[in-house]
Measured scan of single mutants.
Amino acid sequence: LDITFHVDGKNIHVHGASEEVVRIIEELIKNNARAEEIKETLERLLR
């Protein structure tokens, strides 16, 4: 699975993920999660 995301100002662009995963990533970023935390969360979800 190949998910890429980047933050452009306040806009979060996520590619290669389901809508549910996109929402989770957006929440994590809004809550100022570190990249490592986001990665760990995604790995748990995608197991």
Score class of each variant (00 low, 15 high):
F5R: 00
E37M: 11
E27C: 08
L45W: 07
E26W: 14
H13W: 07
H15Q: 12
R34K: 13
D2A: 10
V7M: 05
R47H: 15
L1D: 10
G16T: 06
E36T: 08
A17V: 15
F5T: 01
T4V: 12
D2P: 07
S18D: 08
N32C: 08
L46G: 02
E40I: 08
L42M: 05
I25P: 00
I3K: 08
K39N: 12
E26V: 14
I12A: 01
N31E: 08
L1Q: 13
H15F: 14
I24C: 02
A17D: 01
K10A: 13
L46F: 09
V21Q: 04
E43P: 01
N31R: 11
K30E: 08
E40D: 12
A33V: 12
E27Q: 12
G9A: 02
H15K: 13
L42G: 00
A33E: 03
T41R: 05
R34A: 13
K30D: 04
V21I: 14
I24G: 02
E40T: 10
H13S: 09
R34W: 05
E19K: 12
T4G: 03
S18I: 04
D2E: 11
K10T: 14
E37I: 14
E37W: 08
V14F: 06
S18P: 11
E27M: 13
V22I: 14
E36G: 06
H13E: 11
E43M: 08
N32M: 07
K39P: 00
T41K: 06
G16A: 08
R44V: 10
N11Q: 15
I29K: 02
R44S: 09
I24P: 00
N11A: 14
V22T: 04
E20A: 09
R34E: 10
I24T: 09
E19A: 13
N11P: 14
E19D: 12
I29D: 00
E37L: 13
K39L: 15
T41Y: 07
A33I: 09
L42P: 00
R47N: 15
E19H: 12
A35S: 11
V22R: 09
E43D: 12
S18W: 04
R23D: 04
I29N: 00
I24Y: 08
K39V: 15
I24W: 04
N32D: 11
E40W: 08
L42Y: 03
R44T: 11
K39Q: 15
H13G: 03
L45Q: 01
I25R: 00
A35R: 05
E37D: 12
V22Q: 06
N11Y: 15
R34C: 07
I29V: 08
L28Q: 03
L45I: 09
D8M: 04
L1C: 07
E40Y: 08
A33H: 07
I24N: 03
K39Y: 15
I3S: 04
H6M: 13
V14L: 09
V21L: 13
G16Q: 09
E26N: 14
R44E: 14
R34H: 13
R44Q: 13
I24V: 11
L46Y: 05
L28N: 00
N31F: 05
T41F: 05
L28F: 04
G16W: 06
E26R: 13
I24K: 08
L28V: 01
I25D: 00
L42W: 02
R44L: 13
E27F: 12
I12T: 02
A35E: 10
R34G: 14
V14Q: 02
E27G: 10
V22P: 00
R34V: 09
E20F: 04
E36H: 11
V7K: 03
L1V: 14
V7R: 01
L45P: 00
V21M: 08
V7E: 02
L45Y: 07
D8S: 06
L28Y: 03
K30A: 11
E37P: 01
E27H: 10
T41G: 02
K30V: 08
E36F: 07
A35G: 09
H15R: 09
H6Y: 14
K10P: 03
G16D: 10
A35F: 15
N11K: 13
G9M: 02
L45T: 02
I12S: 01
L1Y: 14
N11G: 07
V7T: 03
N31H: 12
E27D: 14
F5K: 02
E36W: 07
I24F: 07
L28E: 00
L1T: 11
R47T: 15
R23A: 12
I38V: 14
A35N: 05
T41D: 02
G9N: 06
E36A: 11
E20M: 08
T4S: 10
E26C: 06
V7F: 11
E40C: 06
H6T: 13
D2G: 10
T41P: 00
E19M: 14
R44N: 10
A33Q: 04
V14C: 03
R44P: 01
E36K: 05
K30P: 00
D2I: 13
V14N: 01
N31M: 12
A17H: 01
N11F: 14
S18G: 07
E19F: 12
A33C: 10
H6W: 14
L46N: 04
